[in-house]
Design a protein around this nucleic acid. Structure first.
Lengths: 104, 104
DNA sequence: TTGACGTTTTAATAATTGTTTAATAATTTA
DNA sequence: TAAATTATTAAACAATTATTAAAACGTCAA
């Protein structure tokens, strides 16, 4: 995963509404949740949600799937895990003992 | 870990210079690295670096330690891991099978 | 104590981001 | 086809953020 992609993903999650959206979708799993249901659950206007979905989608963190007049969003676990791995890469020079106390 | 703390940590990492700083410090381990050395390594001005250190420190992601006229910064692994755990909490409703394909 | 070094702070400007309102698009039901 | 539902887009404004240059603050060595 490239640095720019990681920055974009982190940036997408660095906002309270989007973080809440993403966390709900992580719990939902691959089935995802409808846009309107997420909006209601979080008490955010549809227009505002749509902007946030766009940001998260563009970062690759969520994917959309249309079903009738509903749009279901689901977390993209591959991108999430790529981002997490990028942050911890070569932790403590790969020496497991060096940061054992900190569960690194 | 609280949502606001996580947003602050993600926000701190959502910038290319700060992400690079943090990654170097993760590799360094608890010993850390001097501010000037990091600045030189990344080709960023000391003043600019100082601002970024402040942002990362405030988010709790790094800690400073003065040694003579040098200031050493080190990654705070506890906060990093807290942040990572927050993102994956209750993944796929805790069902390991639901997202097995995606290494969640 | 003077001067040099490493780092931080202040102040200013340019660029990016979040939210709202209103309008638009796509899909279903009557 | 027309109306209703679900979601997205466009435009505008307020708020936040990144960068630079200059000045200031500690610390050490002569």
């Amino acid at each position: 995963m490239k640095s720019n992609q990681v920055v974009e993903a982190l940036s997408a999650l660095a906002q309270s509404t989007r973080l809440a959206i993403f966390r709900l979708l992580v719990v939902c799993g691959p089935a995802g949740m409808a846009a309107g249901q997420l909006a209601e659950k979080l008490g955010v206007s549809p227009a505002n949600m749509s902007h946030h979905f766009k940001t998260l989608s563009h970062a690759g963190l969520i994917v959309a799937r249309q079903d009738g007049r509903f749009v279901y969003y689901a977390a993209n676990f591959a991108v999430m895990n790529g981002m997490l791995a990028y942050l911890t890469e070569n932790c403590c020079e790969g020496d497991p003992g060096a940061c054992a106390d900190q569960k690194c």
